[in-house]
């Protein structure tokens, strides 16, 4: 095999480097400006950590953070409870039903969030679901469910059925084989999908904006509403704090996935 010429390789690597700089520049800016002591987030005045102190003492920000965490937890639970069996079924119980099901799944992934959000708002009002937290959780769960199903299906297909067949040969009834073999094998996929759907829900703007009720604003909605009167350092500080927590979570997930999966399968596997 001829080695690719070095200059083209170097050019490509430089290009990739530039793209990564482009992707990370705004994140760096947020981190740096969260230490901006000025009254206005955009105008740098002096280094200070005062906005961190302000942020954790602002009841509205803290409340929004709590709402975000609660909504993410519930929507995550819904998505995982419904998505794991469906994902396994897609890999193990294929049939006439699977192609239309996949079409529905891709329609859900492909529908603009805005359209889905409007539909949610109309529908949840219609059926009389007025609990702010539940509305957020239900709204976020639809897209997350699709993501969970894709991840679990990719894992179940990657593993093959040999172990379950062996369990059946050794006399395990299907239920027992499912509980003792299939589910534990799915654990990494379940963890990955828990993380992903939690974060998708945590970061969601559009669905939250439409389905929210007074008093249950999520953190992104809080940030968005403080945009008009002028953004202050406290939102940047709270985002940097959540970033730290997220990174820690991602690290744990990455380590777990590395143990259990081959390279590049984290999101790549789900997109196959």
């Amino acid at each position: 095999m001829r080695r690719p010429r070095n200059w083209s390789r170097a050019l490509l690597l430089i290009w990739m480097g530039l793209v990564f700089v482009f992707l990370f520049l705004p994140i760096l800016v947020v981190i740096i400006y969260s230490f901006n002591g000025g009254r206005n987030l955009y105008v740098w005045t002096e280094f200070s950590t005062r906005w961190y102190w302000v942020a954790v003492h602002n009841p509205r920000v803290v409340n929004a953070l709590i709402v975000s965490l609660q909504a993410a937890t519930i929507s995550c639970a819904i998505a995982v409870c419904l998505g794991v069996p469906a994902g396994i079924a897609l890999a193990r119980r294929k049939g006439m039903w699977s192609p239309p099901f996949m079409v529905l799944l891709f329609i859900i992934l492909g529908t603009p969030e805005l359209v889905s959000a409007i539909g949610q708002m109309i529908w949840l009002d219609r059926i009389g679901l007025y609990d702010g937290l539940l509305r957020l959780a239900v709204g976020h769960s639809l897209f997350n469910l699709a993501v969970v199903i894709l991840i679990v299906r990719a894992r179940a297909e990657g593993l093959g059925e040999a172990l379950e067949d062996a369990a059946a040969d050794l006399g395990a009834v299907p239920w027992r084989a499912f509980m003792q073999i299939t589910l534990p094998l799915m654990l990494p996929a379940v963890l990955a999908s828990v993380l992903l759907s939690f974060i998708l829900s945590f970061d969601d703007v559009i669905i939250s904006l439409f389905v929210q009720r007074p008093g249950t604003s999520t953190l992104p909605i809080q940030i968005l509403s403080s945009f008009k009167p002028g953004l202050k350092g406290d939102v940047a500080a709270i985002v940097v704090i959540t970033l730290g927590v997220t990174l820690a979570g991602m690290l744990v997930a990455a380590l777990m996935l590395r143990r259990s999966d081959k390279r590049g399968k984290f999101l790549g596997g789900a997109l196959n």
Binding site: V30, D203, F227, T246, M250, R263, F266
Partner: peptide
Amino acid sequence: QPILLFLLVLPFWISFLLRTFAWRIILA
């Protein structure tokens, strides 16, 4: 490869709103 892929999706895990706001600081 896995490290770079991780870095590639990392921005997704940071408030999409604030990343967009950051461009206001950069482009001011």
